[in-house]
Simulated scan of single mutants.
Amino acid sequence: MALTLEQLRADIADVLGESPEDIPDDENLVDYGLDSVRLMVLVGRWRDAHGLDVAVTDLAERPAVEEWAALLGATG
């Protein structure tokens, strides 16, 4: 099953303890509390649920929802 933009935002919000509506597309997620541990949790979640194989470092270089959506091919 493909990762949707809605699921991407929901997963990010979940690990950050935020509401999905409070996570803007273009903001640096580090400012919202994203750290390496949370990033590894997300990568593992997306690998298990969606079969995505992405390097933590690729996501860490561009920590924004819109950047990740493009990198991960999230739709919708």
Rank of each mutant, 00 (worst) to 15 (best):
E6P: 04
E18C: 07
L29C: 03
A60L: 09
D22N: 10
A13R: 07
E67N: 11
P20S: 03
R47S: 15
L34M: 14
V43H: 02
E61R: 14
V43N: 09
L42C: 06
A49D: 11
W68P: 09
E18V: 02
R38T: 02
E67S: 11
V37F: 15
L8A: 05
D14W: 15
M1E: 05
G73R: 11
I12P: 06
G73N: 08
G44R: 08
V15N: 05
D25G: 12
N28I: 06
D35R: 11
D26R: 09
A69T: 06
A69K: 13
G51T: 07
Y32P: 05
L16H: 11
E67D: 09
L8W: 03
G76H: 10
V30M: 05
V41N: 12
T75A: 15
S36D: 06
V41Q: 14
L52R: 14
R62W: 04
D22W: 04
D48W: 01
L5D: 06
S19T: 13
D11M: 02
A64M: 12
L16D: 04
I23S: 06
A70G: 07
Y32C: 04
G76N: 09
D35N: 15
R47M: 05
E6D: 11
R62P: 00
V65Y: 02
L39T: 03
E67I: 01
G33C: 08
N28K: 11
E66W: 01
D31F: 15
G51M: 08
R45G: 00
E6M: 05
V30G: 00
P20M: 01
L59S: 07
V15D: 03
A2M: 07
T4P: 10
L8E: 00
D26N: 14
D48N: 13
L71Q: 14
E61C: 00
Y32G: 00
W68Q: 04
L71I: 12
D53E: 15
V15R: 12
D26T: 11
Y32I: 03
I23K: 07
V30W: 14
I23H: 07
L72P: 05
H50W: 07
L39Y: 02
E27N: 04
A13I: 06
V54F: 10
R9S: 01
L52E: 01
L3Y: 08
D58L: 07
H50I: 09
P63H: 08
R47A: 15
L29D: 02
G17A: 01
G73M: 10
D26G: 15
D48G: 05
L8F: 05
A69R: 15
V56H: 09
D48M: 04
S36Q: 05
A13G: 04
R9I: 13
E61S: 13
D11R: 13
L52F: 06
V43A: 13
A10K: 13
L29G: 02
D35G: 04
G17N: 06
M40Q: 10
G33E: 03
Y32Q: 03
L72V: 04
T4Y: 02
Q7A: 08
V30N: 09
T75M: 06
L8G: 06
A55M: 09
M1Y: 11
D14V: 00
D22R: 13
P24A: 01
V54P: 15
T4W: 06
A49R: 15
P24M: 03
S36E: 03
L39E: 04
A55V: 00
A49M: 10
V56P: 12
A69S: 12
V43M: 03
V43Q: 07
D22H: 09
D35T: 09
V54H: 13
G44Y: 00
R62Q: 09
D48L: 10
D31N: 11
